[in-house]
Design a protein around this nucleic acid. Sequence first.
DNA 1: CCTGAGCGTTGCGTATCACACAACAGTATT
DNA 2: AATACTGTTGTGTGATACGCAACGCTCAGG
Lengths: 263, 263
Amino acid sequence: MRDDAHRSVQSVERALAIVQHLADDGVESTGSQLARQLGVHKSTVSRLLATLEDAGMVERNDQTGGYGLGLGVVALSGTVLGRLEILRVADPVLRRLAEITQETVNLSVRYRDKVMNVQQIPGPNVLRSRDWVGKTVFLHRGAGSKALLAYLPDAELRAYINAPRVVNPDGQHGHLEYLWREVAEIRRAGFAINRGELHPQVYAIGAPIFDGQGRCCASVSVAGAPEAFGEARLPELAARVMDAARTISQQLGHAVGRFASMA
Amino acid sequence: MRDDAHRSVQSVERALAIVQHLADDGVESTGSQLARQLGVHKSTVSRLLATLEDAGMVERNDQTGGYGLGLGVVALSGTVLGRLEILRVADPVLRRLAEITQETVNLSVRYRDKVMNVQQIPGPNVLRSRDWVGKTVFLHRGAGSKALLAYLPDAELRAYINAPRVVNPDGQHGHLEYLWREVAEIRRAGFAINRGELHPQVYAIGAPIFDGQGRCCASVSVAGAPEAFGEARLPELAARVMDAARTISQQLGHAVGRFASMA
DNA sequence: CCTGAGCGTTGCGTATCACACAACAGTATT
DNA sequence: AATACTGTTGTGTGATACGCAACGCTCAGG
């Protein structure tokens, strides 16, 4: 634990732990609660919170007196999203895909051992559109995620599948060896399909996007009600999604047909 | 400078300064550059960056070797936006407004002495839709901003107008006394209008939103090309925007007609 | 009204820890 | 090869962030 001793700054680590804590439960909490959960004195937390509040990273709710994440992180998010060049080139393609399919379109990029949604264009019959940008899911859950996973370099893919995992409370994580078959299937078909993995009533199709170096860096997916993914419509949807992914890859400088990461 | 001595944590302040710096220029920079600009040793910056990178707040670009903001801030942003209840209640109203007007609809909230965009529904003929959520503008610039400004409590309004301001390089900030007349006009009409203040080719109309305590906490605005805001259409647009704002205010618990902040 | 328990803030003293320094490794340009 | 940049990492020391305790505050409930 203390092996990488002074490669990092303790107080900053604590501040970031506070931020992560406020982000995880989502709900705001008091400084004393944070102090207990982090195992430090409440005066320390008070000073850290004051510093974070000055920067706009956390805000105090006037009504309840609790602390929560501040709008400053939204401002930061805006600049980082604005600098993601993949968003610039993908945006018109995604809009067109949404218009053609009349379903919800997502763009996801890899983030550590997860996949993060960075753009969502809600379809006409979407209910809960909000709170999706910035959401992360594991690489093996969901269409967009699996599309990304399947085209990782073999070493990374093997490492991910064999990595020791803790079984979540929901019991969703076991051994992932079964993924080898699904990955092969995805590579063969060129797209991944999700039949209610994340939400029972949401099916999705995802296809990989490759950057200029031929690495799979993102994925595009189309999500909708299960009825929309019947045998009749699925081939057309898959073709549309793969076409969009290919277009974006081209604009990122990827030579079509050269799937370097499959070599 | 050092008067509020140990009410804040220096190292965390420095870390946040790094983050702000990376956000401001938008462009990524090297650790040495950051060290020079902050006036600290590069080894300090190196350790701070390592800590921030572990948390996903900054990322190193493999190609250029520079540091930039990381996707971790996007994840944080997702949770804070998901907890903004005004987004939940406003979302359907905004979508309906966008559908009716066929223009771009924005929802803004106050953030310190600025206004932040927290939701944008792009219209059909939008060009650059991206990178608007999280963007901040001053309270007196733009339709949504001025709508919020005009309904601030008088004390805050006076403080804002009389606050000493530095003149920006673009020379946009001078004395703001002229705002008193415009504020009166906005309060009389019930909406604010922006004729190319922020971008020459973008006009907008904004109306205030009030929370359960009757405080003006947000605003909704409709933006589009100047041609769309001619005499013929402007009254209807203004009515639509004010109607949407009133609907959202109602759902936030504000009694219609009781504009407490105008008393 | 007083009490008690919860909250956050703030002086203070001390031990920790984060800093500057310097040396090192790596890379690109000369 | 040499220079000029990077970023990383040991090391010593002095600044500093920590825990403690006391304070002011609000709220709940005898």
